[in-house]
Design a protein around this nucleic acid. Structure first.
Lengths: 338, 338
DNA sequence: TTTTCCAACCAAATCGTTTTCAAATTTGAG
DNA sequence: CTCAAATTTGAAAACGATTTGGTTGGAAAA
């Protein structure tokens, strides 16, 4: 059913019907009500493509998905979905070819030019992220999930990675630990730098010298956690505590500790960052895992919300949210053994 | 840059340019080459919305995302993305409001009517799935990831859940186990039924009576694995083997076994199904986990491929793929102890 | 030379809306 | 009761492509 026939059936012009449905003020309440009612009854829905062509709005927000298949991706998306449910906006997932630099820029440029999205969410930004510069230059509204130091105004939502790791590390120091290892994410991303900074600061403020041997970085896989923890614990002068980067690396760390006949929460303390997954909970691990916690799903929901605001004209300059991170102490952290 | 100006710059009509770019035969090779070249140089790209309006094609395939935030979702999507990279087709993620029946039908109906997608991928189908009936009735191309018994022709790709579980269970029986527990997915989905069937058949063919107490079902969380395994192992006459449904439940099962001072691969054998995650590998678990394996990412890639075929006219009747599942034996399965 | 045919191109209609500008109707003040 | 102002409604022009149904010019056939 097209606007044309629908309007005819109502004995109105397409103009009026269109206006009635889009909530323009210059149509009488009586008419609007009738139109709305009949639209439901006769099942008229405007053709999206026509609307998009005419208005130039795409009705979708883009999320570029890396190849890595990060496990928190689904949670973030689910969160976004929750917010967009009531909106007339969908999520467009754009596959990213290669993390190859040139290709990536090309991808964003084409995405913008294709006019398939009204806004873009940028993940895992780098301190000087060209994607941000590009999107700004092209005038495409975008929200950064994370932060960047780049000298270009941009809306962002981030969690306090630095504070989280600082507190986690400090807490371990409070417990008497001085050899504290740290598993970080892939170098390059701002969040990894922030975590590194938090770690260093905590050590420094307590006069503990940093041992570069105790730092690892890479994708947050259980394998990384296992290998790194294992190799450290086998060395002379092993760490007594480990700040694992994620739930998955924490699993690996637990395994490594156990494999050497040691116990988490006794010989080795562990703290990880928990994005709050429905299928893997820190509280359920054995021993239960002390964690810095921030809901990835909630971030997705809020990001969707902020993006909608951006699209409807709110200035990116006003949108900066730094979320505090909870530190939840459980059994995996304990005073250092002597 | 619009077609109009672009054509003018080339000294051609919009018609010819459009044809040249879409590969129609009635334009000379010389012209085609020139147009293609200039399009790149001048940066002309057809406006997607106009193309979509005119052709009626949406240029996107829809994936309805449940609220549960299943952890394999990202893998499947990454797989799809890999295939669609070179295509001019995006992935539209549609949030699902409630698993409430009526709403769900409504959602699909509106999705079809909105013409935002050229095809839909249906996940976790039920034996008599009304979504399938609906999509068929509405004439929307769709691919079922999984299977359904419904009496409506539909394209599907599924893994051999029944065979996988049958083999896993049989193998455990071969090792002398007779009390074998089974953790299944949420009841209702076809795959859960298939797994159940595989389990029952394996037992039956070896004359082992089924004990309903040994079966659990629910979302594949580590918690389910832990609670169920733990409660069973504490009982009198505990199982000596467990067919865990997923990697996450397997983690819970491992934990439960350990928490009772037992060892996986000695007092209790465990087999799980592994969707192949980059961040959590069966081989790395301790002890390494015997698993039925099938790549979720590969399924995503193939599903995308098949959907593209559907869209370009291939009959759904021809598209039925049942993927065999590998059984990989590792340390978590061992002969029953007596 | 004339006719026929074919390759190569083009003008204009079309997809289904939104929106500008103008017309019709109602309202309210005088 | 009149007339201007305010409220409702409509006709028609966009939006930017694709595609139908021609033209055109030159080579091949007659």
């Amino acid at each position: 059913m097209k606007l044309r026939e629908f309007a005819k059936q109502l004995g109105l012009s397409p103009t009026t019907v269109s206006r009635a449905l889009s909530g323009y003020p210059e149509v009488s309440e009586v008419t609007r009500a009738r139109v709305a009612e009949e639209a439901v009854r006769l099942g008229y829905r405007p053709n999206v493509n026509a609307v998009r062509l005419k208005t130039g709005r795409a009705g979708a927000i883009g999320v570029v998905m890396g190849r890595a298949g990060e496990f928190h991706f689904a949670e973030f998306m689910a969160g976004m979905a929750e917010r967009l449910l009531t909106e007339d906006t969908d999520i467009l997932v754009i596959p990213m070819a290669d993390p190859d630099h040139n290709d990536e820029m090309q991808l964003y440029r084409r995405l913008v030019e294709s006019q398939r999205v009204d806004a873009i969410i940028v993940h895992s930004p780098r301190p000087n992220d060209e994607r941000i510069a590009l999107l700004h230059k092209l005038g495409m509204p975008f929200l950064v999930h994370g932060r960047s130091d780049i000298d270009v105004p941009h809306a962002w939502l981030d969690i306090d990675n630095e504070g989280a790791v600082r507190r986690a590390t400090s807490h371990l120091i409070d417990l008497g630990h001085t050899r504290i290892a740290m598993i970080n994410g892939r170098p390059g991303a701002t969040y990894a730098l922030h975590r590194d900074k938090g770690y260093r600061e905590a050590l420094q403020s307590r006069g503990i010298e940093l041992d570069p041997q105790l730092i690892a970085s890479g994708n947050f896989t259980d394998e990384l956690g296992f290998r790194f923890a294992r190799s450290l614990l086998e060395q002379a002068n092993p760490p007594t505590a480990i700040v694992a980067g994620s739930m998955m690396t924490a699993l690996g760390v637990y395994r490594a500790v156990r494999s050497l006949g040691l116990q988490v929460g006794r010989e080795v303390s562990v703290i990880a960052h928990d994005d709050v997954f429905p299928y893997l909970t820190a509280d359920n691990m054995a021993p239960s895992l002390s964690a810095t916690r921030s809901s990835m799903r909630a971030a997705g929901t809020r990001c969707a919300d902020l993006v909608l605001q951006l699209v409807s004209g709110r200035s990116p300059l006003e949108i900066h949210e730094l979320w505090p991170v909870e530190l939840i102490l459980r059994e995996s952290t304990a005073p250092v053994q002597r």
